[in-house]
Design a protein around this nucleic acid. Sequence first.
RNA 1: GGGUCGGUAGCUCAACGGUAGAGCAGUGGCCUUUUAAGCCAUUGGUUCAGGGUUCGAAUCCCUGCCGGCCUACCA
Length: 488
Amino acid sequence: MSKQEKDSTGDIFKVRLNKLEALREAGIDPYRGNCEQLHSSSEAKSHYSEGEENSPTVKVAGRIVVMRLMGKAAFVKILDRDGRMQLYFKRDEVGEEEYKFFKKLDIGDFIGAEGQLFKTKTEEITVRVKKFTLVSKSLRPLPEKFHGLKDSEQIYRQRYLDLIGNMDSRERFIKRSKIISSIRRFLDKQNFLEVETPMLQAEAGGAAARPFTTHFNALDCDFYLRIALELHLKRLLVGGIDRVYELGRIFRNEGLSRKHNPEFTMLEVYQAYTDYRGMMKLIRDMIQTICDEVLGTTEIERYDGEKIELGGEWKEAKYKDLVIEATGDVDWFALSKEEKLKKCEELKIEVNPALEDFEITSNVFEKIIEPGLIQPTFVTHLPKELCPLAKITEGDDSTIDVFELCINGQEIAPAYSEQNDPLVQRQMFEAQAGEEVQNIDNDFLLALEHGMPPAGGMGVGIDRLVILLTGAASIRDTILFPSLRPTT
RNA sequence: GGGUCGGUAGCUCAACGGUAGAGCAGUGGCCUUUUAAGCCAUUGGUUCAGGGUUCGAAUCCCUGCCGGCCUACCA
């Protein structure tokens, strides 16, 4: 097929391949060139000073995302890490031959450009290009320039296209990274030590979730991907690292939803010589510091327009009081199991009748109370069955010293006064394990028997925190590459 | 796993039983400050896949694949 015939097919990829071939014939290999990026787009813009003669020369680089050719001059927008920047190409400035070459560039190509800054008549700071270089060629078309990429599947599978076309998505992910670095700064400043513990574990403990299984060839035994960070971090408390945290990925082999991704990022923090009340202050300070450093406001607007205020003191409420309030006229906790089930029916809460009493109550909490906790609320005094790793409340052996911080209708962070009595801990494990006694983490109990200082501990689901702080509609909008079924 | 909605040009979307279209992108022209630039011309389709109903299917039915939402599972 001749070049002419290929061109007439209209297939963009083939047309671009031909352009690439033509460049190479002319002695230009766009994948061999490079350029200097002295300024990012926003750095360049910050160098502008009124009056073009005062403005310095800048060297910028990025991907062409918009091209507006007007005969002998053109406006182009490039995208770099800081966003978009406009370039102005004029035949009389870059030279006739160069301008001819420029006109053959495509949207999607990477270029480097240098020139003086000026303001257009609509006040946009723009580079008046003097010299430019093609440094990488794009062979595929970009998504539509105005609407961007809309197809959710393609957004997830080809996130790079989403990041090029959808600036709100791009900004959300930048915000995620800034939130995480803000968290690290906050904890480091208070002398917490960041550590890394095993992701591959012979027994996946610290939570009640189904783990992913893998095989460890060298040891010839099945291993699990971790489902929590807790048990290793507490071993470090035993080891004398009395302020410790880990921020990393954990894996739970469970359903996918708007609020769940099988691999997600967890922060767990342990501080000795404090308790769950100390954790309250820590998490509030931490979130308010993020608001200050990253968002510049404590007021969040959700995707549906509802406002969340994160400033000031936060509400506190006892679990039991919330349940009684939500279930109305009767004392929920005085009801028999049958009466509870009946009440659930009245309240239109689907409950599996085989569940234990406290599980039915937990269902009520998760289905009608938690979704209503939009403003930050510390829910305290949870029933002991829900958290086998925490201390029993003094003077009330039915509850534990714990809070669950709920914001945006989701659990953002649970925190405990950590159980450090090795004998009580063993009992709790045994009661929970029932028949499956072999699953008890004896190595962890051995560590506890050596003595663990009193401590407050906390887990923060980072993805959900990012959902909250960015007003995202789904966890998939906060994870660059969410889990999807592979395409064959 | 169940329910439900969707999959049409590279992208954003029309057409909803009667010849598959538009805008953007692309290609060829015009245009020396544009802002989703504009103007003229023009290329581009196994309508997700496979069956069925029908004179005729993108459209109706069935099965499958992929995804969204809801739900289930879920410390």
